[in-house]
């Protein structure tokens, strides 16, 4: 998969380096446990996820997740 590609029903998130959390939708706190009940900030391209990680100096990396299950696709 190249940058900008998005499989149907997936989105990019900023996943914490240890894989145990993702960047929460803004206005709450930075990272929350990567569980279906917690809504991450979703990005439509990998580049956007990389940009937010770079600009906020987050110790994270882009990860593709299924919107339905909120689990990482092909981790």
């Amino acid at each position: 998969m190249t940058d900008g590609d998005l499989e149907w029903g997936t989105a990019w998130v900023a996943m914490r380096a240890d894989g145990r959390g993702w960047m929460e939708a803004f206005s709450v706190i930075g990272f929350v446990p990567a569980l279906p009940g917690n809504t991450p900030a979703l990005f439509s391209t990998k580049r956007d996820a990389e940009d937010v990680i770079r600009l906020l100096h987050l110790g994270a990396s882009p990860a593709l997740v299924s919107i339905e299950t909120m689990k990482e696709v092909n981790p």
Binding site: M23, F26, I29, G30, L56, H57, L58, G59
Partner: peptide, 12 residues
């Protein structure tokens, strides 16, 4: 303003 604390939390 947007801020990131030492622990990596994003705050205003």
């Amino acid at each position: 303003c947007v801020a990131v604390t030492g622990g990596g939390s994003i705050r205003q």
